[in-house]
Write a protein that binds this DNA or RNA. Structure first.
Lengths: 157, 157
DNA sequence: GAAATATAGTTGCATATGTAACAGTTGCCA
DNA sequence: TGGCAACTGTTACATATGCAACTATATTTC
């Protein structure tokens, strides 16, 4: 691998936040993936949807979209898949026949608890490797970022 | 959206680093995506590969994999696509006939410069929205994380 | 209160991706 | 040397995803 000296650097990848975040996300997710995949035949999207339902109890698909930044078609299909596995149920929303309130079934909750336990163990392991100070800082910053999403998706390009 | 009080929380999504990183990555990447997609018909993977070649001048596919945590088949296909667009060329490595040294063609460099310019603008915009202090902290931590990947992919599960 | 506009969610189709299996090459070491 | 393990990169096939278009329902606006 040879460093490129020729071009005047307008742009340095190492400072590009979306890129850094992608790397980090990929790096940290890659191993946990095998847990929900081999044990429950779930995809990342399905796990993410399940985790949100586990946390919030019940939500509509649109709420999941807004909260997770996952595309609505991806959510739609994840919901269908989770329903077919018997992990999720839909209940009509009174007063709005467009949307449905989603929640985990008992079986879904059991799976969520089990996965959650693995996830917690994975997270502890990860934090140990990163160092607790770094991990805590990272968590704070990411949470700040999550809390202020308003501007992020607005004006570009 | 109704908060779930019933289950004793073994696991809180808000503290799960891989999840937070995924959200953040998705959130920040979503808009920039349209730039390389509509202007060059490129995918995220292709852009990531190109950006690395732009930065490092020349690398093998395996080096890209190690550096970016992108799967080798994904890299393989991105390389093929970039080659077909005329953005990338392969040169045999002397002394090892398994691998090829990859680099951008002049056309590829031009595209990279243009995308880099857009990316830099996007990043400035993002940092402004996050606040510079937060953005700088985030960058530092992510870079720290990148520099110490050794442990991350090792022991779990 | 009718028409225009916005929203929730799904579907069709092309494309991208993941996993496993593979071919070819190299390194090791007995 | 020979043979086995490790490595680089590609391919096959099933699955997941992205985008646009669509249905159905709500909301706004005049």
């Amino acid at each position: 691998m040879k460093k490129n000296q020729s071009t005047s650097q307008i742009f340095d990848l190492d400072q590009f936040l979306p890129y850094l975040l992608n790397q980090a996300a990929e790096m940290t997710s890659q191993n946990f993936q095998t847990v929900y995949r081999v044990e429950y035949g779930m995809t990342r999207t399905q796990w993410r949807v399940m985790a949100n339902l586990g946390k919030f109890g019940s939500m509509t698909a649109a709420e999941i979209c807004r909260l997770t930044f996952i595309e609505k078609t991806k959510v739609s299909r994840a919901v269908l898949a989770l329903e077919e596995k018997g992990f999720l149920r839909r209940v009509a929303v009174v007063g709005d026949r467009r949307s449905e309130r989603l929640s985990l079934t008992p079986a879904g909750s059991v799976a969520y608890q089990a996965l959650g336990k693995s996830a917690a163990a994975f997270d502890r392991d990860l934090r140990k490797r990163l160092g607790h100070a770094v991990a805590d800082t990272l968590e704070d910053v990411l949470r700040t970022l999550m809390v202020n999403p308003e501007g992020v998706s607005s004006s570009f390009p």
